[in-house]
């Protein structure tokens, strides 16, 4: 196989890695939009809090002298998901629920305010310096010739693929099979009607925020271990990209968010790999404009029917 092929494969793997994490964060945007028709701009910050939670769990356990990898990973995921979900739940209670039912712009402003608040809260509490994380999972595979260009796939990248895949499968099963999932779908279809039929819509909305935050926490744990650096500002760019992924795939659609994330990640990697990394954001946002021109609701989005 030629060098060109290996190079292409490497860029696809890079793109899928970054795309997987965009997808995990994008789910939070798309689920909230699907149910209450609001963009939760504080979601990027929730992801950042997930990263910090992971750091504290890992640092805390390391201080206690625990060095079993499996135990560390389980603890990091479990505690980070719990802490971040608590944030997701509280954000909805504090910043959005009191404003629900009013003009749609009001919760949007509240979300931006929440985002600024969380960013500065973490900055003041933890300082604005980059915090370096220990890399728990090191090493990887090399595919291809040893003396020419070869493809590297780290174990951490594989962990990212696997964990993303498992999270998505669990979420899909939850939405399509469980009672609560059915209630979620009902609310997404018509929240007023769902309320009349005896569904506790407040609870459904809270659950939506908790699920979004939990997936953001998973992304936070994975990415902070993969890149090894966290700071209070990382939520902004990640949130923006994930929001783009959600819109690209069709906001409100869960498979759309995954597809959008992967397309965005692969587009960025291919542009940086074959053209120039200076233009990767230009190309990915250009692609977004292009898709929206022909499919205004995104790739998998359903055209919105005005509810009377």
């Amino acid at each position: 196989m030629s060098e060109q092929f290996y190079y292409f494969l490497q860029q696809i793997l890079n793109g899928v890695t970054i795309g997987s994490t965009y997808a995990l964060i994008a789910i939070g945007y798309t689920m909230v939009y699907g149910i209450i028709g609001m963009i939760n701009f504080a979601h990027g910050e929730v992801y950042m809090i997930g990263s910090y939670a992971a750091f504290f769990v890992l640092a805390g356990l390391a201080m206690l002298g625990i060095d079993s990898l499996v135990l560390l990973l389980i603890a990091a995921f479990a505690l980070s998901i719990m802490i971040t979900s608590a944030y997701g739940w509280s954000i909805e209670r504090v910043a959005y629920r009191p404003l629900r039912g009013g003009n749609r712009l009001i919760p949007l402003i509240s979300a931006i305010g929440m985002s600024i608040f969380l960013q500065n809260f973490v900055r003041l509490a933890q300082g604005s310096r980059d915090i370096a994380m220990p890399s728990l999972i090191t090493g990887g595979w090399t595919i291809g010739p040893a003396d020419a260009f070869n493809v590297t796939l780290s174990y951490m990248q594989v962990v990212i693929f696997v964990v993303t895949f498992i999270s998505m499968t669990v979420l899909t099963a939850f939405i399509s099979k469980s009672k609560m999932g059915r209630a979620c779908r009902a609310c997404a279809e018509d929240i007023g009607m769902a309320n009349l039929l005896g569904i506790n819509t407040n609870k459904v909305i809270s659950i939506t925020f908790v699920i979004g935050a939990a997936l953001a926490a998973v992304a936070g744990v994975l990415l902070s271990m993969y890149y090894g650096v966290i700071n209070p500002y990382l939520g902004f760019m990640a949130g923006l990209k994930a929001f783009t992924a959600a819109v690209l795939g069709g906001i409100g659609s869960i498979p759309g968010a995954v597809l959008g994330g992967l397309i965005l990640g692969i587009t960025e990697a291919i542009t940086a790999g074959y053209f120039s990394s200076e233009y990767k954001d230009v190309v990915s946002f250009g692609l977004l404009c292009f898709v929206l021109l022909f499919m205004p609701t995104g790739i998998l989005g359903k055209p919105e029917v005005e509810k009377v």
């Binding site: 190079y7 490497q10 860029q11 890079n14 793109g15 890695t17 970054i18 990415l223 890149y227 650096v229 500002y233 990382l234 760019m237 960025e268 990697a269 291919i270 542009t271 940086a272 790999g273 990394s277 990767k280």
Partner: peptide
């Protein structure tokens, strides 16, 4: 500046 993933440019 602010990006976290440089895998594409490193492969290049």
């Amino acid at each position: 500046a602010g990006d976290k993933d440089f895998s594409a440019i490193i492969a290049k």
